[in-house]
Design a protein around this nucleic acid. Structure first.
Length: 779
DNA sequence: TTAGGATTGG
């Protein structure tokens, strides 16, 4: 077959395909069959950016959906286009185009298990005498918008246990080991990084770049990285990663709950909400699956004859000889042992003389050797460093002098030995700066006499010191968002006063209920003021099962404002599922903006749909209209939030009421608006807790009724988001240390209101916390 | 190309 260039044809009848070509069905793609005169036709549902392979060949990947088998479990296939055709094709195709490929080569798809597409992919290139015909975009047809074919993210990330030799992949991982960038024996910088992920596989990567900045900015074990276009090779029976053309990386702090700020030198990188979730999930996984050593060592805590990583500031530096270089650093704490001073002339030390003198009792000399000299020489005075795997060497026993310790950074890169420069934005640097500024140099001068040997255990560890500091500073962990002008009132006075009144108080949290925090989340109707439990998933599953018994009414399919797709499950149950896609401007909206209604879906199926589509509404058919299910089920699912309506205050309307919203210029599908047009009084998620507060004059139970202001965590999201649950637990542990004495508890500053509750039998005064919030740095 | 994790010399 001759090489044919891409053709764009307006209507398919205008230029028919060559007559010798016969259409082949997805189901009939088999190895060993002769596909020479066959062509495959499908709809473009996804395409990826053109990339270059290791050898410089252009590469373009397109995913096609087979319209003849759109209801089959596997109805899409990857098309890999190489060389000139890749670029030609990428320039003209659009999502939704009809795409014909002839003269393809069939090969096993290495990604079939992950992407759920056909077990084979089609390879297309000029060399293989392939031809591609693209029919310009037509109005979306029913099958392509079933969009159970999801519009996948732009990048696919391969779990570490699915890596194949010779592929170029994108991946995420948690750093288990790393060597900070060093100058290799070749022409580039090198960094070696070992990653792990929840698949429990491990991947060691050798990363090279002439540009230091383009290597991943990893500062500690437990950091999370995202690599794009890393080449996978097999080496000594194990998979290995290596930089390929176009390699790019992002790195993130691995601390659960820390802000997710990508560290990268790449401009214009893509980073979606979904990827944010990936990072947070990996953090949580790593927290319980990766042993990350405790808080970093300080000079005050060094042990002789060991290796440690030191975060410090560079005060001075000097050349010693050809193979060693001196770094004078401090971290604000004092090393409890006498330390070795490297003999160099004071005039040969680069650094601010006055500063060097003032800090002389707090700085230590670190001698770095061989391959580290070059980098050490380039360091700027005042910069913040992390020096990895410093050896604390005790002076030899036969030395007549008093024993002292020496700090060496030996040559080589074993165990990640090396020097990393930390940016000012690094959280550890921020902490260190604050600490350095607080150091009273007069103290360290006085301590000089104590420095020889003080090993009787009277030194406080840093954690003791910090918790003491917090205890004595009396800084409250909650603050008022208003009423700053009020004075504090003692709890005794409040308890002896009549209600209703408002007070500012300063108290400690003795205990709280419920202790199981998930039990504190309820649903509240602001109209009738009722509270109810959040329905359990099992209950919802039952309601959905019940509604699936009602067969969808075909007359309610494909109306003026939505398009419907109906199919029957392949399993024994032969369940009928119908999805109604609401149209806007005669078009189905992009999945992330689209609203759909589903009949007969299971909880799992609905859950999956919410990952792709903005809004999902479970419905059932009646004789004349689609209707909401029983209000024990959510009237709407959006993201990972289920929205419920109040049974007492709602008057549900048929679904056609929604058509007016669809006709709006830009339907926002806001839950409150949807609720309104459907006659639903929405319930709000709320935290309800009882805090027992004490201040030395009395004890008072105050209720917390909080949508999200107090904890800065939306009550609506906590039940479905692990890391928010962890965060809330950490906040409560900070407010009320478990098992701790009251002395260890921090102060809370709160605004409370007293109010009367009377019934026929009795009268009681209650208290509620208002206008109060957790301080930013409580964790 | 370089490194391919796996301390300890000066």
């Amino acid at each position: 077959m001759p090489v044919q260039l891409l053709k764009i044809i307006k209507g398919r009848s205008e230029t028919p395909l060559p007559r010798h070509l016969q259409k082949v069905d997805l189901r009939h793609l088999r190895e060993g069959f002769d596909h020479t005169n066959k062509y495959f036709e499908g709809i473009v549902i996804l395409s990826y950016p053109v990339t270059k392979l290791g050898d410089g060949t252009d590469f373009f990947k397109v995913v096609l959906q087979d319209m003849d088998n759109s209801c089959s479990r596997i109805n899409s296939i990857n098309i890999l286009i190489y060389g000139k055709m890749a670029e030609d094709c990428a320039q003209v195709i659009c999502h939704g185009d009809t795409f014909v490929v002839a003269g393809f080569k069939l090969a096993k798809s290495p990604t079939a298990r992950e992407d759920g597409r056909h077990g084979y992919h089609l390879e297309v290139s000029e060399e293989a005498a392939s031809a591609i015909y693209i029919y310009s975009k037509q109005r979306i047809t029913a099958a392509s918008k079933t969009a159970l074919v999801p519009v996948a993210p732009k990048y696919v990330y391969t779990p570490l246990n699915h890596l194949k030799d010779g592929t170029i992949v994108n991946l995420y991982g948690v750093v288990k080991f790393f060597k900070p960038p060093y100058i290799s024996k070749g022409t580039d910088f090198c960094s070696v990084v070992t990653l792990v992920d929840p698949s429990n596989a491990k991947l060691t990567c050798s990363l090279f770049s002439g540009n230091l900045d383009s290597l991943p900015k990893i500062y500690k074990v437990g950091d999370i990285v995202r690599f794009h276009r890393i080449k996978i090779r097999e080496y000594n029976g194990q998979m290995q990663g290596i930089t390929s053309a176009g390699f790019a990386s992002l790195a993130f702090d691995g601390t659960v709950g820390a802000p997710i700020v990508p560290r990268t030198s790449t401009k214009g990188y893509s980073f979606m909400d979904e990827e944010q979730k990936t990072v947070e999930d990996l953090r949580i996984w790593a927290a319980s699956n990766l042993s990350i050593s405790g808080p970093a060592a300080k000079l005050s805590g060094v042990q002789p004859m060991l290796f440690f990583d030191l975060t410090c500031q560079l005060v001075g530096k000097a050349k010693v000889d050809g193979s060693s270089f001196l770094l004078k650093v401090w971290d604000g704490t004092k090393c409890p042992y006498p330390t070795w001073k490297v003999p160099v002339e004071a005039r040969d030390v680069e650094g601010e003389k006055g500063h060097l003198h003032r800090l002389r009792n707090l700085t230590v000399d670190i001698l770095v050797y061989d391959n580290h000299v070059h980098l050490a020489r380039s360091l700027k005075i005042g910069s913040f460093l992390r020096i990895y795997s410093i050896h604390t060497k005790q002076a030899s026993a036969d030395n007549e002098d008093a024993s002292h310790i020496e700090f060496h950074l030996h040559g080589g890169t074993g165990y990640g030995r090396g020097i990393g420069v930390l940016p000012e934005s690094n959280p550890d640097v921020k902490d260190l700066k604050v600490f350095l500024e607080s150091v009273d140099l007069a103290d360290s001068q006085d301590m000089e006499s104590m420095s020889s040997v003080e090993l009787d255990g009277t030194f406080y560890s840093d954690t003791d010191f910090e918790s003491d500091l917090q205890r004595y500073q009396h800084l409250p962990v909650t603050v008022l968002t208003d009423h700053q002008d009020l004075n504090n009132t003692e709890l005794k006075t409040i308890l002896n006063s009549t209600a209703p009144q408002q007070y500012r108080i300063r108290a400690k949290l003795r205990t709280y209920k419920p202790q199981k925090l998930y039990q504190s989340v309820k649903l509240h109707c602001s109209k009738c003021n009722s509270l109810q439990e959040v329905p359990h998933g099992d209950k919802l599953a039952l309601i959905l099962q019940g509604s699936a018994i009602t067969a969808p009414n075909p007359e309610l399919c494909n109306t003026s404002w939505y398009d419907s797709v109906m199919w029957t499950t392949q399993d024994q149950k032969q369940r009928k599922i119908t999805i109604h896609f609401v149209r806007h401007n005669e078009m189905i909206q992009q999945p992330q903006n689209a609203l759909l209604m589903i009949e007969g879906g299971t909880l799992k199926e609905i859950w999956k749909l919410t990952k792709r589509f903005k809004c999902v509404i479970p419905v059932k058919s009646t004789e004349h209209d689609l209707e909401l299910l029983d209000l024990s089920a959510p009237f709407l699912l959006q993201g990972n939030i289920k929205y419920y309506g109040c049974k007492q205050c709602s008057t549900p309307k048929p679904m056609k009421s929604l058509s007016s919203m669809a006709a709006e210029r830009q339907p926002s599908w806001e839950p409150t608006e949807i609720a309104q047009v459907l006659g639903i009084e929405p319930l709000q998620y709320v935290f309800i807790m009882k805090f027992t507060l004490v201040d030395g004059t009395g004890a008072l139970d105050a209720y917390l009724f909080d949508y999200e202001k107090f904890f800065k965590i939306p009550a609506s999201e906590i039940l479905t988001t692990d890391f928010l649950q962890q965060k809330m637990q950490m906040i409560m542990n900070a407010l009320c240390p478990p098992g701790g004495k009251l002395d260890d508890s921090p102060w809370l500053e709160c605004f409370i209101k007293s109010y009367n509750v009377r019934d026929a039998m009795k009268h009681q005064v209650y208290y509620q916390i208002f206008d109060t919030t957790i301080v930013e740095d409580v964790l």
